[in-house]
Nucleic acid binder design. Structure first.
Length: 298
DNA sequence: AGCCAGGCTTGGT
DNA sequence: ACCAAGCATGGC
């Protein structure tokens, strides 16, 4: 088969917009009715169509498996939904967010992004990551077909997420210029550990959940919540259950309305209550809480 | 103007 | 083991 610059990935129950905007990834932007972003060194436009997800790359692609893997289009989604507990909160969350998916991201990009996420709103995280990529990322492949900017001004040529080696070579001041504040030394330290091979991110695939979590938590700026985000969004540990303020609020209100439960207790509850795909359940609860709280805007 | 954001670290009990 | 403060910064 000849390499093509576009493909349609057939999917059912896949809400592309909810997935790309649900706070698990920070590089996708909606232009018109298509999403623009970068996976690895590939600039992509993704559009949801009745036939599936229509992907357009900047140049011919011989094998699209990497995109199927990134988008996780081949998983047994009904089996994931069926694994959830049959209780009222989960029924409501799934009903409100049907088609919400988890991506499978690059470990370094995911780790770095979530080091930058602490006590930041999603819009701000996106801004920091955009600065970082614009200044220190690598050019994408085949960008002669890149879309031109609109009347608001030309958008910069899309770049990759900066590899660890690129960030490791920077100074803290250069990173702080990307508006990341006190997170700069944490990101710099992590980048140096990865670049110096003191930390083998690929090696974490061979560990079990607890061991991989312990490894990530050795990093400065990485506690349990951020480690769980990386384990869930990059490594595919579906048992990982990041507990942030939204999910904590959801668990407290929906499952522990009377007594106060510690983070440890909530994670323990989550691990046993939500089943083997607890991480997916977490994403539904998170998204559900956010859309439920949304009416305050506008 | 002031409050808060998908936290983590450190220092106090 | 649990609590509080401090940390930088931009959006609303």
């Amino acid at each position: 088969m000849a390499p093509a610059t576009e493909i349609i990935l057939p999917v059912a129950d896949y809400d592309l917009a909810a997935t790309l905007a649900s706070g698990q990834v920070f590089r996708w932007r909606l232009l018109g009715n298509s999403w623009h972003g970068v996976v690895g060194r590939q600039f992509l436009s993704l559009t949801q169509t009745p036939a599936g997800i229509h992907a357009t790359a900047a140049g011919p692609i011989g094998n699209w498996d990497w995109l199927r893997h990134y988008l996780q289009t081949e998983i047994d989604y009904p089996a994931v939904l069926n694994s959830f507990p049959d209780d009222e909160p989960m029924r409501r969350a799934v009903a409100a967010c049907r088609g919400l998916r988890l991506l499978r991201q690059d470990p370094w990009e995911c780790l770095a992004s979530f080091i930058l996420s602490s006590t930041k709103q999603i819009v701000q995280i996106r801004q920091i990551v955009a600065h970082l990529c614009e200044r220190f990322g690598e050019p994408c492949e085949g960008m002669h077909l890149a879309p031109t900017g609109d009347s608001a001004g030309p958008s910069p040529a899309p770049r990759s997420f900066p590899p660890a080696s690129a960030i490791a070579a920077l100074t803290e001041a250069r990173l702080r210029a990307c508006k990341m504040g006190f997170r700069a030394p944490s990101l710099l330290a992590a980048a140096r550990q990865v670049a110096d091979r003191n930390l083998d991110l690929q090696g974490l695939y061979r560990l079990d959940y607890a061991a991989a979590r312990a490894e990530l938590m050795k990093l400065r700026g990485v506690g349990g919540k951020i480690a769980d985000c990386v384990l869930l969004f990059a490594y595919g540990f579906d048992c990982a259950f990041p507990v942030d303020v939204w999910v904590e609020r959801a668990l407290q209100e929906l499952y522990f309305p009377r007594r106060r439960a510690s983070d440890q207790r909530l994670r323990q509850f989550a691990a046993t209550h939500f089943g083997p795909h607890a991480g997916y359940a977490q994403q539904f609860l998170f998204h559900y809480m956010r859309v439920a709280a949304e009416p305050r805007r506008h």
